[in-house]
Design a protein around this nucleic acid. Structure first.
Lengths: 211, 211
DNA sequence: ACTTTCAGTGAACAGTCGTACACCAACCAG
DNA sequence: CTGGTTGGTGTACGACTGTTCACTGAAAGT
């Protein structure tokens, strides 16, 4: 352990280590089945030193959500950019989705597992982000349906349906990702199915009229 | 505690009590954050007596899934019956859904929370049931799309999309159900949104052609 | 150079946990 | 009536938990 760092840097390093080992320790268990001592042990510090960085495991959980959601935000941004250049919106979205989930399987696994099972604060943090995601998609849809005067309610419900479908794709991807026997083929099938579901919805949109 | 029962009946009674208190103890926590001792305490027996009924909390969890899924099966059956008598399939389905979730909020809450966060065996038990549900819907859809020669893949992906949407409805219903401020109105809004999502999908189906 | 700050230490605490074991006493079959 | 079966009891054990407290020593501020 070379130590050519300032004190603040050292602190930030262990803090990050605590977050990292927690994520990796989680594997496929729930956050609140992991003890503070266990995390400290894995991070190579004494239990009491944990409190120099977080006041509880719950708080660590909330900050872990933030960190896991950052790549998700990046994904959304990239998708929107990719959309501008590609002709097929759905194909582009699905492709980006596949890449990001593969690159951040641990983080997505954590988010999925804590979405409903976790502590209230953690659940809330995830839920907020997801709602935000949905509204952003609704805005995009408004652009696409301009001229058909869709109600905001209809836009929101369609966006929610699409986000739900994408979420299911992510979940399925993460679930196969753990044991990589024929991983690529399975992933492709899941993505393809998601794409078809989006197309089906898009097809419905062409016929839909807000009443 | 009047005891005008046979020994077998007494045993079954405490067994059921263990399942009941676990479900009610779960409230909004995860199953594996509940200790064997806690359950025994709530059921009014000594910790060691727990082993006369289940060999571990995990096994109790699996059996609890079975018990919680029974009303779900009933719901599916009722829905299909209701469909035969009603003109509007979607409207009927949604209505039955709303009633069943309201009547079994605890059970559904448990299933939702353990769907991704729980122990492997519990997750598997829930997943199996859900997959079965989807295939049954696919069969129903095959009847409706007869003449348009849909591929089985397309039937399955459409059924999955619909089940996903319904699942989201259930989740939203359970989440508001805990604090009943304006519960009825919110529930109605959620159900209405779910109905519209199903209609949007149905609309897409009329335009879809399997390639 | 001197003092303050503070990330990390190590021992100790009161609890809770799962489980093993010997022990009842009420039921039931013979 | 009798003897085995078996839910349920009570005690005990070692392991692990979150948190307290006084501490150390190197970096940072002056």
């Amino acid at each position: 352990m070379a130590s050519g760092q300032s004190r603040a840097e050292r602190k930030e390093a262990t803090r990050q280590r605590l977050l990292d080992v927690t994520l990796q320790l989680i594997g496929s268990r729930s956050l609140d089945s992991i003890s503070l001592r266990e995390v400290a042990r894995a991070a190579g510090i004494v239990p009491t030193a944990f409190y120099r960085h977080f006041e509880s495991m719950d708080q660590l959980g909330v900050e872990l959500v933030d960190e896991c959601i950052r790549p998700l935000r990046q994904m959304v941004r990239d998708t929107r950019r990719g959309v501008a250049s590609h002709g097929d919106i759905i194909e582009g979205t699905i492709q980006v989705l596949g890449e990001y989930v593969a690159a951040h399987a641990d983080q997505f696994g954590f988010l999925i597992r804590e979405r409903y099972g976790g502590v209230r604060q953690v659940r809330r943090a995830i839920d907020t982000e997801l709602t935000l995601f949905t509204s952003e998609l609704a805005v995009d849809l408004a652009r696409l349906t301009a001229g058909y005067d869709w109600s905001t309610d209809d836009l929101e419900m369609t966006a929610a349906l699409m986000v739900g479908a994408m979420l299911k794709v992510i979940i399925d991807l993460v679930e196969i990702d753990v044991r990589p026997a024929g991983r690529k083929a399975k992933a492709a099938a899941i993505l393809e199915r998601g794409a078809r579901q989006l197309r089906l919805i898009a097809l419905g949109m062409t016929e839909w009229r807000s009443k």
